[in-house]
Amino acid sequence: MMKDTLFSLLTPFGPSGQEGPIAAAIAEMIRPHADELRTDAMGNLIAVRHGPGKRIMFCAHMDQIGYIVLDADKEGFLRVSNVGGVNPASAGFRHVVFQNGVTGVIACEPLADDKPGIEKLYIDVGADSREKALEIAPIGTMAVIAHQASQMGDHVAAPYMDDRAACAVLVELLKALGKPKHEIIAVFTVQEEVGVRGATTAAYSVQPDFGLAIDVTPAGGVPKCDPPLPAKVGKGPAVKVKDSGSISTPVVRDGLVAAAKRAGIAFQYEVLPYGGTDARAIMVSRGGVPSGTLSIPCRYVHSPVETVSVRDMEECVRLLKVWAEEIVE
């Protein structure tokens, strides 16, 4: 069930560079559905379903944005830097959690007229000295936003829909795939949030004929959306045309549209005037790979209340199954 899969994947720890726990959780889930499962030196989880025909590389990134402990001051407050694209202006005053389960809060110094910045944030773990703070969270450990979810009918809000919702779609796709027409490689990538790094090396070793990234995309249709964005939550899977990382190769983009039409799936086109996905990394690998992205529309991306539609996610699975089994030549 999509919702159960989603909730199982929202909670395991996995900031960029420390994806061990989420990789293990996903590996357990997909083991019965893969012919081969391996991990590379950066931690990418690679699942293979053998088949004749072309090699299709799907990817969804496992890593989360978060914080890394740099030191603690003598009063016991941990100083941090960001792992991936944290917006310092809205990062303060949240619950955070470390890999070992220890919880704390991230707070922000008073700004007055200053601009927000990562160096104004700090994590409070209830310690009263540097030694105690570093015992609880040593230098180099990472923290992520603590999990809390709201269910609003078909919509669900929680931290890290980016990109655990896509991981859920990819897990469900592996379960849904039938007799193989092509070889399917499902890569749960690492370090997307710091520069699509996992996908770069995974694409190099997988050498696919087609690349398909599954990621969330910021949705429009919310008050004062600036710049205006076309994708809307609840209006179906979004076929990405362009973002700042890549322009989807026409054969892949058109193939996704053809799959949607064949299966009678309501879909949308989306264009983002910023951002990027793992598709860019696959596209420039070696001699070039036709690639694209199927996006899950998501409100409030990179906030603790990322909101998606479960039905949009289910439709993504249906669309990708038809694409892989009936459209790709």
């Binding site: 590379d40 030196a41 740099l70 090396t201 190099y204 070793s205």
Partner: peptide, 23 residues
């Protein structure tokens, strides 16, 4: 010692990721 503020880039980025991943 560790680094207390993250900044700067160097050849490690390229060497870790040119081709197959390397520690």
């Amino acid at each position: 010692q560790p680094k207390r503020y993250l900044s700067g880039g160097n050849d490690a980025g390229a060497l870790q990721r040119a081709g197959e991943a390397k520690p």
